[in-house]
Design a protein around this nucleic acid. Structure first.
Lengths: 377, 377
DNA sequence: CTGTTAGCGCCTTCAA
DNA sequence: TTGAAGGCGCTAACAG
């Protein structure tokens, strides 16, 4: 393995100058810099990560959990997006197993104690999640993918998250169908009080009401519940059509349910079916679907962890300085300005490029709701 | 962070003694050892991974790729199994992105140069895979999950792999159906020359012939091809039943196709459908399925990488010594004894516990074929 | 702007 | 059986 010394010798400078060329090029004289860079190129030098980590006490590594059974069809694409984004920042992604919350916390302890990780991405968080409490108690850096549904205040500065606005996605689908002349649009969602599920259903409900496509009483007729499997989707579809044979479109909360619906309908039907997650399965069946912007989500996940890490570092550095509070935790600005529900009124601004919705003009950089796109066929 | 010095002070010994307690307990006096262990416990000490890696020049890290789109429904469970097994050996798993073979090789270069990784798990390998050639040229340690189909010799010592014996799995299913009185057992497989697909089909064919359940001509009638989606499964099912209305069981090469078949059949049918991979989807539909032994596969993947790493280390150490060749590469023993096809005759031994099939009594530790289990409903 | 010094935490000699 | 010295590769602080 070629080390910084080899490069230094090759370029005829000291190891420190080589280091500077890499970590702080501005302070090196351009002539020397090109000299050194040429040597780096020639020797194909890459700094040793362990040595750098040991020296800087930063691992530049994000950890994300992997469960015994996949909790979502988008998990692999999410991992890929995260790895891609992290890679662009020189950050590695390491996996840890999540057999239970308790086991997961044990993994946290291990990873932290060994200095293997400096931030965590948490998935599938629940109301009063012990992992969140533990990480905050131990002053660790983390970010959730998915909102902490059920928390009284979803915009606490201590609990940053990135999520995809399922409600807006389903609202988009609904509007799209209305524009294409659909009159009686049904919805099949998940039963129970799942935050994600209720949020998506609300996207349909609200849009239907706003467009005066149905009365609240009619909406109840147009709505069905189904567990997340194909058979349940079929059953719900049949029940729905039985009650309302005039239906001309069915919006489903997931691609799995949409698959059941599509297969329950006669092949020559005019009824449009839509799904959520834009899985390969939905694609091969030609089902339009709401696609989560995973690259954008990954970008925000990495950004938030890095910003908070920086803030924590600054905080530590300012510990001896006097005016710590003034410069510290810039990411908290406006964090408490959000609403308890995380609602995103349609009138809010959207920067278009990232599809990020900002609340009330006061950007909350620690709680990011991304707008999904509609994958039509 | 608590370091080895803190423990040493706490226990009233030198840092080296603490180090010995951890890495070579045998040479420490029992009394001192318990003293030190108590201090470690009390301070909750864990050695810093970066420092250890820097010192030992071993990363104790395995890398596995993640593709933009999931190539298999078992990938998440595989990752979980791998992380679990690695964890038990004090090894970490890091992800790298695999956008193309060329990109993947670039990732290899990065990971190696930074000293982040000392072994790779390769998935989805193809005939004449450039990654395999590259890794061997650069003397890197790796192991494939899945056989290198299409290679002239699948038992080259340079190309170790772990795979699940799809043929045996499908043969098991076939025998099971025969035992339960099925007379006319159809098969729906993938079109084309996919090694995995052909192997699974062969499991059915051979078992049918051996049991005299059909003539070769009949087998052609009982066989269909389908792309790996639900609709194709439905279509193939209909074609099959059209040709052979007397069919009483349909074995499918995948759960996706099995799903299509199950949905194409009338609800009151007596025809049994089986799948492959035992996905949650198949489970919720009540489809019996062949389950891959992923924990066992992970165990073998880790074992092979570690053995080969050890061998490589010994080789390097013996570089100055004289009789290098004698002790080096113990894992190669019998490696060339396999057959070109990787066929596993039914009479071969099986150690039962791991479900591992050994070839001709000569264990080939670098080419492991695991026997899947049948998940009945 | 460049080089020297020192040390991150650990483990492998080798001496006591 | 235990301890002292040295260095893995890198970078922060300072001296030139």
């Amino acid at each position: 393995m070629v080390s910084i010394k080899d490069v230094a010798r090759e370029a005829g400078v000291s190891p420190q100058t080589v280091s500077n060329c890499i970590n702080n090029p501005a302070i090196v004289k351009p002539a020397t810099r090109t000299l050194v860079n040429a040597a780096i190129e020639r020797l194909n030098y890459t700094p040793n990560a362990s040595a750098r980590r040991l020296r800087t006490q930063r691992s530049n590594t994000i950890a994300i959990g992997i469960a015994p059974v996949s909790y979502s069809p988008i998990y692999d694409p999410l991992l890929h997006a995260l790895v891609t984004e992290a890679d662009a920042h020189g950050i590695r992604v390491i996996l840890y197993k999540t057999d239970s919350h308790q086991d997961e916390i044990r993994q946290f302890e291990q990873l932290i104690a060994r200095g293997d990780v400096d931030a965590f991405v948490l998935v599938n968080t629940t109301h009063d999640d012990p992992r969140i409490a533990w990480l905050n108690e131990h002053r660790q850096t983390f970010v959730l993918f998915g909102r902490p549904w059920g928390r009284a205040d979803m915009h606490e500065p201590d609990v940053p998250w990135v999520d995809v606005d399922g409600r807006a996605g389903i609202a988009d689908v609904t509007r799209h169908l209305i524009l294409h002349g659909c009159k009686h649009i049904g919805f099949i969602g998940w039963p129970g009080l799942s935050g994600t599920g209720m949020d998506r259903r609300l996207g349909w409900r609200q849009t239907m009401l706003d467009a005066r496509m149905a009365t609240p009483a009619e909406l109840d007729q147009l709505s069905e519940d189904a567990e997340n499997d194909i058979i349940a989707g079929q059953t719900a579809c049949i029940a729905l059509l039985d009650r309302r044979p005039d239906i001309d479109a069915i919006i489903c909360v997931s691609d799995t349910i949409a698959t059941g619906v599509a297969l329950a309908l006669p092949t020559d039907t005019d009824i449009t079916v839509t799904g959520f997650d834009n899985t390969v399965s939905a694609q091969s069946l030609g089902i339009p679907s709401v696609a989560q912007p995973l690259a954008g989500a990954a970008r925000e996940l990495v950004r938030i962890t890095q910003e908070r890490l920086r803030a924590r570092l600054a905080e530590a550095a300012a510990g001896n300085g006097a005016d710590a509070a003034a410069t510290v935790r810039p990411t908290d600005a406006g964090a408490s300005g959000g609403t308890a529900t995380g609602a995103t009124p349609n009138g809010d601004t959207d920067d278009g490029k990232t599809g990020r919705t900002t609340l009330c003009g006061e950007p909350d950089r620690d709680h990011v709701l991304l707008t999904p796109t509609l994958a039509l066929r």
